[in-house]
Nucleic acid binder design. Structure first.
Lengths: 198, 198, 198, 198
DNA sequence: GATGAATGAGAGTTCATTCAT
DNA sequence: CATGAATGAACTCTCATTCAT
């Protein structure tokens, strides 16, 4: 009877799921959990709102799933810095560009939303606590020490330097949210002075 | 005729209004306009939700009133930099501390909420456009030029420098919103490298 | 201690009560029970809304009191037809003019509101049922019979004639409510054809 | 793709819409705009109150839609007089019967509510002003002139005659609203004396 | 007696979620 | 699997009523 075999169905399911995740990421990252209506996600994904519930039990589950993905992806994104070309400061420069890239890092924005909103599902909160900023700092520490040793980065406690860098970056990402023309993204070179120091 | 004279009544009204504004500022700044329920403000102010509507016609009006106040206060706060003691860099240092101060600058956060949310009342939008970042930059420009002339600030286009400084500051303020322990406020001295340069 | 003796207080009370009743009648008659807010009555009476509750336990009680008065007054008003000068048709003509008079018969309008609204307090409903249209008809019957005997009124069942006359009058009063310019009050002479007949 | 085809869906939507309009008409006509709660309409239509908002954006929109329909229908109803059989007076007699028919003319009552309430949406007010009583009078004028020429209607200014007829009719319709047993609908023949004259 | 600040039940409206088809 | 009609909890706002002064 059925014209589609199990394999094909699975493929459709995977595609739909991917489609929804992509759409939800876009909307949640920009508008936060309360500001996002399920119908917005459905529209963005080009499907009916009813179908969302075949793939995700609830708005909260969808959001939590995204947070989970975002944690993984952001860590992978930061970890990737070691595969970028050039000296430590050049690596950081490229990483910073990627993160602040306009269309770029929705995942970072989502994490920010999850971190700064109160209506976040309990499970997402826990995830964020587990994979905290500390993870990013751990990842970046070797690079920063390299940079200091190479004399490219300013001396002093590297954790402090990293923390400052990450906080500034996180802050800037949230401003990015609406492509607000008022706030213009600062010159990366000026920004990197935080790291290179005086 | 009246059992409470006009003066006493006016005093009660002023107190209540102040109480509501304070409570609303706290909640709006933290949770944004959609995330804030009128009942939260009422609870925070220790009054019934009904009473809110004796003092403000609607949630939108209350929010807009706060934005107006915030614009005035934030501009006054920044303008105040010239009355701070010390050299240009010392003035900026103190200003930065004040702005990033934990309990401090709810008004700046509110403006951020107003700027980045989609559901902001039309009038509040206009207010924000009028008193844009440009106002802040205009206010700070003389100080930055002084600083550059004194050799304390890095050379180059002062507007660019200011823009970078303000963007970083704005970003950090939003992180401040939840007193997130994860993000720790960066050392001001490290931060100021943006301005002092290499 | 008290500068006012019991008698004076009683006088104030009576005056206030009268003032409220007059104001409430005006507003209720025009806007119905739901359309009328207690604050409207207070404003119309030139007092605070709180004071209303010193004189009437509730909106319902106030409305019911008015209905009671209105029943008495309207019956008195109709009964008064016999003291008007002229032949039966002249009496009826004057009565009709009085009832349809613009500022005139608020009581009739109130009764109409009470009769046609659903939110009327139980007690007011009972009052209206007791003092029904039948009372008016009973009052008018002798006059109509006189008129018929005098050849001024059309022949036939006088109750039917009265009922028709009262229904038309009641209907016109409701149109009167808003002084709607669209509906203009018909010529009384044309109207009286109902009674005088062909 | 779709589990219900577009045609079936459209049919459901049309039915629901019709169902809601019918229910709303019944309730609004009887209780006016303030006296009507959306939940009453929902109950009358046998649906949840939430569903009302799938079909009409707001109470005001629903009311305005009904007023629009009512204007059209009432004008059509009156215009139809020319297709009724018989002489002018026979036509008017039948028209009057139809309008005063018990279940009949909710639309006329709705217009009355719209005309006499203060809380009517702006757009509905404009509609009513546009299609005022004057429209009805314009429609009826030729018939009345015919009737006068045929000697069936009383002489005199036909507009005055029509205005009187319409005012009386409108008034009677509002009494009809509650099927009040007290007010019994008058004999049409007695009523028509207004037109036929003495 | 008189005032108006204060309360809270209830109405209009939105939107996450369910479910028949 | 896919759709969108349908539901109801929760939110904003109004207004009758209470009560300290």
């Amino acid at each position: 009877m059925s014209p589609l075999n199990e394999e094909q169905l699975q493929q459709i399911r995977d595609e739909r799921r991917e489609q929804i995740i992509e759409a939800a990421l876009k909307v949640f990252a920009r508008r936060g959990i309360i500001g996002t209506k399920m119908s917005m996600i459905a529209t963005e994904a080009g499907i009916s709102h009813g179908l969302l519930y075949h793939y995700f039990k609830s708005k909260d589950e969808l959001f939590t799933t995204l947070v989970q993905l975002a944690m993984q992806e952001s860590i992978a994104g930061i970890g990737n810095v070691y595969h970028l070309p050039g000296s430590p400061i050049e690596k950081i420069r490229t990483l910073t560009e990627l993160i602040l890239d306009k269309d770029g890092q929705l995942y970072f924005m989502l994490i920010h939303q999850a971190r700064t909103s109160d209506e976040v599902p309990e499970k997402a909160k826990q995830l964020i606590e587990q994979y905290s900023i500390k993870k990013y700092a751990d990842l970046l520490e070797p690079l920063f020490i390299d940079g200091q040793n190479a004399g490219e980065f300013s001396a002093g406690n590297p954790r402090k330097l990293i923390s400052c860098y990450l906080s500034v970056l996180s802050g800037l990402m949230t401003l990015n949210i609406h492509g607000d023309e008022d706030y213009q993204m600062p010159d990366i070179d000026i920004l990197l002075r935080i790291i290179t120091g005086p």
